[in-house]
Write a protein that binds this DNA or RNA. Sequence first.
RNA 1: GGGCAGUUGGCGCAGUGGUAGCGCGUCCGCCUCACACGCGGAAGGUCACAGGUUCGAACCCUGUACUGCCCACCA
Length: 903
Amino acid sequence: MLPKAYEPQEVEQKLAEKWQNAKLFAAKGDKTKKPFVIVIPPPNITGALHMGHASTNTLQDVLIRAHRMFGEDAYWVPGTDHGGIATQNVIEKKLAKEEHKSRHDLGREEFVKVIWEWYNECGNAIYTQFRKMGWALDLSDIRFTMDEKRAKAVYECFKQWWDKKYIYRGKRLINWCVRCSTALSDIEVEHEPENGKLWHLRYKGEDGSDGIVIATTRPETIYADAAIAVNPKDKRFEKVIGKKVIIPLANRAIPIIADEAVEMEFGTGALKITPAHDATDYEVGKRHNLPIMTVINDKGKMINCPEKYLGMDRDVCRKETVKDLDAAGLLVKEEKYNHAVSKCYRCHSTIEPFMSEQWFVKMDKLAAPAIEAAESGKLAFHPANWKNPFLNWLKNIQDWCISRQIWWGHRIPVWYCRHCSGKGLTFATDQQGREQLTKVSFEDGAKPIVSFEKPEKCPHCGGHDLVQDPDVLDTWFSSALWPISVFGWPEKTADLEHFYPTSVMVTGYEILYLWVARMVMTGLDFTGKLPFKDVYLNGIVRDKSGQKMSKSKGNVIDPLDMTAKYGTDAVRFSLLMQAVPSKDIPYAEESITGARNFCNKLYNASRFILMNMEGINGPLAMPTQVTELADKWILDRFTNAIKTAREGIEKYNLALTANTLYHFLWGDFCDWYIELAKQRFQTEEKEHVMALCVNILYNTLKALHPLIPFVTEEIAASLRPYVGETEEFLLNQTYPQFNAALCNPEAVRKMDIIQGVTRVIRTIRSQFNVPPGLKISAVITAKNEEDLTIVRDFAPYIKLMAKIDNLTVETNANKPSQTATAVFENITVYVPLTGLIDFDKEHKRLDKELAQAKANIASRQARLSQENFLKHAPAEQIQKTKDELAAAELALAQVTAALEDLN
RNA sequence: GGGCAGUUGGCGCAGUGGUAGCGCGUCCGCCUCACACGCGGAAGGUCACAGGUUCGAACCCUGUACUGCCCACCA
C-alpha cells in the first residue's frame, strides 16, 4: 500500500538521476523538427543558487519541457559564469576569513589558481542544484564562460572589434571602486540615496575681497579645484566673472568662469569645478581647457594636497577639511542634504570618479541595428512595456569601459614589447618578488600587439621580452557573447547552424541593459541575426512584505531548504502560480505549502484511481462515445483546461497554466467527477468510468509534467500500463491537444444547475447542523419545466452529492412544514427539517435572501427602464438582463412565501 | 527632473466594457472506507480618490494621492 501522503524526497532523488543517466535532456539536433532553444542565463559561481535562480530557471524549464512535448527539438543550454568581480570578492573574503590572507599575499597566479579550484567545487554544487531542481539541463555538457571555447570566442570578438576600431584605449573620467580597486562601466554603478550634507564655503578674492561662496557635498576635493563656475545669465555674479579667488587651505588662485551647466537656483549659484573628481566638472573643464588635478588616488587616499592631509583617507580628509575651514572662518553654512550617491553594484562602496586610461568599446554602430530590431518589433518584449526603456537606453548609449583592474577574468589579449613600449609600461615588484606590469599608458608610448597567445616575438623589433596587459575584461563581455559562444562560435558548428538563433531569453529585468542589450548587439554584429526573438522578463522574488531578500536583512528563503522540506515540485509550483511576466513575486513559506498540498492531492487522486484499477486487466482506451452527463461534462472541462494551459505557455503566462490545471484537477476532477464516479464503481459501468478516469488523469499528468516533473513522472510510471503507454518518460510523450469535439456547453449548463442545487442544499445542511452522515429529503420545484427536467434527470447526482435519500421533483410543489427554503436561479429547494430547524436562523437567512432578491430586481429594472439601454445594448445583453429580472422576481416570490409560512 | 508599473475582501494576487474571483488566513460542522497536506459550509470588498467617455467602467480617457522600480552631470 502506498503511503497516504506523497513523500517527494526519495522519488525526486531517484528520478533526477534517472533523467540524467538517460541523457533525456541532451541536445538532439534533430533537423526534421523545429528547434526550440533557450540559453540559460549562467549563474555566477559565487555560491549556492538562490530563489531568483529557482524562479527564472523553473520558468525556462517549463517552456523547454512543454515545447519538447509539443514535438519540437527543444534544447536548454546549460552553463555557468565566472562572475568577475563578484567571484573575486567572494574568494577574497573567504581567504581573509579562513587564512587571514589578501590576494596580494598569494600573488596573481596563485590567486587565480585558487579561484579555479573554487570553480570545481562551487560549479559542481551548482550542477547538483540544477539536477535537484529537475531542470532539463544536460549536465554532461556544461559550458563555462572561462572554458577554452568561450575564451576563444572572447578573443575573436576582441580581435574583430579591434580591427574594426570599435575597441580603443582612452583616458577619461571613469567610475572607480576604491574597495574593488577597479574601473566599472556606467551601468555597474548604482545610485543610492544618502543623508549627506551641503557645505557652503567661502573662496576669498585674490584681491582681498570677500570673493564668492560655493556649495559642495565634497569639500575634500577643493584641493583639486580648477575654477569656480557661475551661470552666464546669473546677474548676481556678472561682475566677478574672470576674476580670481583663492582656494581655502590650499591657497591657490583659480578663475571664476561662466558655464551653462550651473544651476542658478541650487546652493549659492556658484559651483566649484573639480575636473578630476566629478563627471559634470570634467565636462565643464574640457569646455574651458581647465587643468586636471588629481587629489585622491586609486586607494581612496589623499595626494597632491596640503601636507597635513597627505595620505589621509578621503572620508577622514573630508571631516578634517570641514573642521579646518570652520576654524579659518570660511565655512559659511552647513546644511543637511539628501542626495543620490554612486555606489559599486558589487560591494556598495562609494564610487570615486577617477581619471584613468582604460579600454573602451565604441557603441553607436553596434547599437544601431539593435535599435532597428526593437523598433520594428523583430525583437519582442514580454511584457511589451520594456521596449521603450530598452530603446531609450540604446539611443543614449555611452561607450563601454571593458577593462577591469582585477585578476579573475579573461585577460585582455594584448601584449607589449618592453623595448618598444618604453615609458608606456610601469612595473612593480609584488609580494612574491616577481616583477609585474601594473600600468599601461598608450599616451606614454605603449604599443599594443593583439594576440590570444603570447606572440613569438615583437613584430616591431623582433625582441622576446613581451608582457601581457594586466587588466581583465568586464565579466559582461563574455556574457554578451553567450548565445553564440555556447554553440562554438567563431567556429561554424552544426549546433550554431541548427540551434541559433535561440527562441527566447528568459531573465530578470534588472539586467536588461547590462546583459540583454549587449547580447542583442553582439549577436547582430557577428551573425547578422538576433540571438533570440522574444525576451521574457521575469520578476524578482521578494519576501512576503515585498522587500528584496538579502542575507543582512535575514529574510532569505533558501530554495534548497524548501525543496528538502516540501519537495522540489512544491517549490516549483508555488513560483509558477505567481509567475506573471515582469511582476515581482512576494514569496513566503505558506505559498509553498499550498503547492505541496496540490501535489499531494494529485498523488492521492491517482492513488485512489490505481486502487480501483485492481482487477481490471490491460490498458483502457479513452472512450470515444460518452452518454452520461458527468462524462460529457468532465471532457469539456478537461479539454478547455488543456486549451488554456497551452495558451499560458505560448503567451509566457505560466501562472495561467498553473492555475488552470490546479482548478481543473482539484475543483472539477476530484471534487465532482471522482465523487460522482464513486457510485458508478459499484455498477457494470465501472470499466467505462475507469477508462475515463485513468485517461483524463494521465493526460492531466502530461499537461502538468512541465510544471511539476517529479510527481507526475512518478505517478505516470504506475499508470502507464493502464493507458497502454510504452514510452518511459513523460517528456518524450506528446502534450495533450485541445479537442473541440469534446466541448459541450449544454452539459456544462446542466452540471451548473446540478452543482448549484447541490450547493444550496449543502448550505442548508450546514446551517442547521444536520449531521453529515444523516440523509434527509428534499423537494425541488420550479416554474420552468426545462430546468426541472434537468434536476429530475440527474436527481441521482444531487442525491449523492447532497446526501439526500428522498428527492421529490415536481412542478408547483407545495412547501412542506418545518422546512428550510433556498433558491437557485429559477429553482426552489425545500428541505424539510423536522426537529432540526431553527426558525430564528431561517428567518435571518431568508431576510438576507429577500434583500438580495430585491436589490437584484431594482438594478435590473433600473437598467431595463432606460430607453438608451434598450436602444444601444446588444440583444443578448438585454435578454440576459430580462432573464435575471425574472429569476430575481421568482426568488422574491418564493422567499416571501417561505417567510410568510414561517410566521 | 523624466519615464514605467502598482493601488481589488485581514494578507498575497487573478481579472481589460455587462456591478467581482483565487490562494492563504478567519469562523462553523465533519477523522464520510484517495487525501485532515483532507471534506462541506459561512463571514468578509461602494475594485485608492475626483472628474470624463459610454446605455453600462475594476476594466477606456484626464487629473490627484500614495507605493515601488528604472533612467538622469543640480554640485
